[in-house]
Design a protein around this nucleic acid. Structure first.
Lengths: 221, 221
DNA sequence: TTTTGCTTTACGGTTTCCCGTAAGGAAAGT
DNA sequence: ACTTTCCTTACGGGAAACCGTAAAGCAAAA
């Protein structure tokens, strides 16, 4: 079983349950922090004093409060952690249920396990921790299947720029002006229209409203 | 202190922490359910056998799973509970942070306490329970002050319906047809245009795209 | 240089949306 | 019965978006 475990979780009640589950599994003294920055700094400290953590359990969403943080969400935290201690095992424990989001954590950040906060999450948590301890991964069943059937569109930086502008209330005919000022090509209104048309077409959408909703759902903007 | 307490919470880990907090406060044997329908039926049963609950702690959001439920969210559950046992003390324990939502629970449903899942939620939970036991209410400070400075718009069911339709790709001129079929009034295209115009105006938006982005951000749809 | 192929832009017709005005229609008060 | 008020709907002009086509630009190959 793991020697040194760190929990990053902003809901105190959840952190207590996670801690208890770890103790039940034989983990000596699981540590707990409520802020992303603190998590990163503790992991760094663990490396410095040659007592690195061997398991990191983190939430995805952290509510902001009065203390200003560099890192404000779990995904960014994981990325930062991976940079200073790439081999550290990471388990994400979150209420997030969208397959795309979870898949992206697995694909892009290389997490080792995902447990969704749900009706039997404590049980799942134990299974996941035991899996990681054996060198395996642990993911929800739906995810293990559907990492491939990715009907999503490959948004270019150009795409996300114009979509973000629309979401901020810009009118299409105002956007070429912005593109010129920021030296983003193509700048023409026609190109922009054509591009939006293509995106909508590929994704099977009929309106810009629908596209914005989609991008918000999948955190593309 | 309370004699009979029921917890409705779909995250097992949270339910365990709440249960523990109650036991620490001297509650004999707090009961726990993970589904809304089950909560309602247990409360009904308590009344039938002349052992009514005297405190009900509930979450707001319940993730749907395979078991089909009549009631699918905490607000509806509270409403149903109030109908069969109006004097039952109700504490809402949720991650929801939007003041409008919390205010509406207090104003429209008459809840007795609200504790947000956060960095010191267990501590807060204890305080809230003790407050209710003394016949007082317990609400976050910002709520007690700012039921006024509400820069957000009060979306009606009508509003969310048409916005949801837009987000699903419906064209405005198609929506009146839908409204007629579903007997939602007003059905006219003009009313719809006027309403959207008002919403955008109040929120300071210039396009529908911006409105959709806002509604997604604040989980209005 | 010219040709070829691709991307970007310009332009016009059509549709949709926007928004003001005015006409209906129901409920409540006089 | 007659206003008054509020809400809903109808209509029309103008703006914006949509979409096809054609022209212009531009880079690599001939």
């Amino acid at each position: 079983m793991f020697e040194r475990v760190l929990i990053a979780e902003d809901h105190e009640n959840t952190s207590l349950s996670v801690k208890r589950a770890l103790i039940d599994l034989g983990v000596e003294d699981p540590k707990y922090v409520a802020y992303c920055d603190q998590a990163l700094s503790w992991i760094r400290k663990g490396l410095n004093i040659a007592q690195p953590y061997d398991l990191f359990i983190t939430d995805l969403s952290f509510v902001e409060d009065h203390t200003i943080q560099e890192i404000t969400d779990g995904a960014a935290l994981i990325k930062a952690v991976k940079e200073i201690q790439p081999e550290l095992k990471i388990l994400v424990f979150s209420a997030e249920g969208r397959p795309e989001v979870i898949s992206s954590l697995i694909r892009d950040l290389g997490i080792d396990a995902y447990v969704r906060k749900a009706r039997h999450d404590v049980q799942e948590l134990r299974s996941a921790i035991e899996s990681i301890a054996k060198g395996k991964t642990y993911f929800p069943i739906q995810i293990r299947q559907t990492t491939r059937e990715n009907n999503s569109f490959a948004f270019t930086p150009y795409d996300t720029t114009i979509i973000r502008l629309l979401a901020q209330g810009a009118k299409q005919k105002e956007i070429p002006q912005y593109l010129k000022e920021h030296k983003i090509i193509p700048t023409g209104l026609s190109s922009l229209e054509k591009r939006l048309n293509l995106i909508r077409d590929v994704l099977g959408f009929s309106t810009n409203e629908q596209l914005i909703a989609y991008c918000k759902d999948f955190k593309i903007i």
